[in-house]
Design a protein around this nucleic acid. Structure first.
Length: 204
DNA sequence: ATGACGATTTACT
DNA sequence: GTAAATCGTCATA
């Protein structure tokens, strides 16, 4: 287990609760068509438990063109478009036809900061270091992740992958309810959101 | 064909 | 704290 190595298929298949914690501290790497490299340390995740989880897109076994990638093998990217303007990025983490995933909610930016600033800036709005990747739709914007990367196999991809890090010790991991899933009844309050404690890049 | 709804972000009171 | 932005997707008909 060498830090900096890509996560393997086996590692991706650990299931959502385990992988959501394990991804903390790992590096998400995005390489653009012009070979520019953008990356950040994962500091906040959420687990989505699949057919039993009212908050998951695959609750009850729903299978549509949009969420098809969640039914693929662990290590597949699930990227969806929402609210008419935002993309969110997930790591599929089960066997084939076991539609579970981890939503990546925030990163501590590492490489390509200047490019991220350009991608996140709008006329009239300055973006600071802590507004670059501190939210699920902010980081997809900063790293140029959209539906073109849906179904990407991150075990093999030259555009998007995750590199292993030393395990974040349990006492440094916070846990609490997921964000934005109030419609999910009892599932809304379950502690399936994880973050690195006291990290300034965590959302909210 | 239609309508309701977001795994969010941002600006504004 | 509240509300607007903005449109693909899906369930219903």
């Amino acid at each position: 287990m060498i830090p900096g190595e890509r996560l393997s298929r086996r590692e991706f298949r650990r299931g959502p609760t385990d992988l959501a914690r394990r991804l903390l501290g790992c590096t998400l790497v995005r390489v653009l068509d012009d070979s520019a490299r953008l990356s950040g340390t994962i500091v906040e995740t959420e687990a989505y438990l699949g057919v039993i989880d009212r908050a998951a897109h695959t609750f009850g076994g729903r299978r549509t063109p949009r969420n098809e990638s969640m039914y693929r093998d662990g290590g597949t990217a699930y990227v969806y478009f929402t609210y008419g303007m935002h993309h969110c990025f997930n790591v599929v983490c089960g066997a084939v036809d076991e539609p579970v995933a981890v939503l990546i909610r925030s990163l501590a930016p590492r490489e390509g900061l200047q490019q991220m600033v350009e991608r996140r800036s709008r006329p009239g709005r300055e973006v600071g270091e802590f507004d670059l990747c501190s939210g699920p739709a902010k980081l997809t914007s900063a790293l140029a992740i959209d539906r073109g990367l849906d179904r990407e196999d991150m075990v093999e991809s030259q555009r998007l992958w995750i590199e292993r890090a030393d395990r974040v010790v349990p006492r440094m991991i916070g846990a609490g309810p997921r964000i934005g899933v109030d419609y999910a009844g009892a599932w809304a309050s379950r502690p399936l959101r994880f973050w690195i404690k006291e990290n300034p890049h965590v959302s909210r």
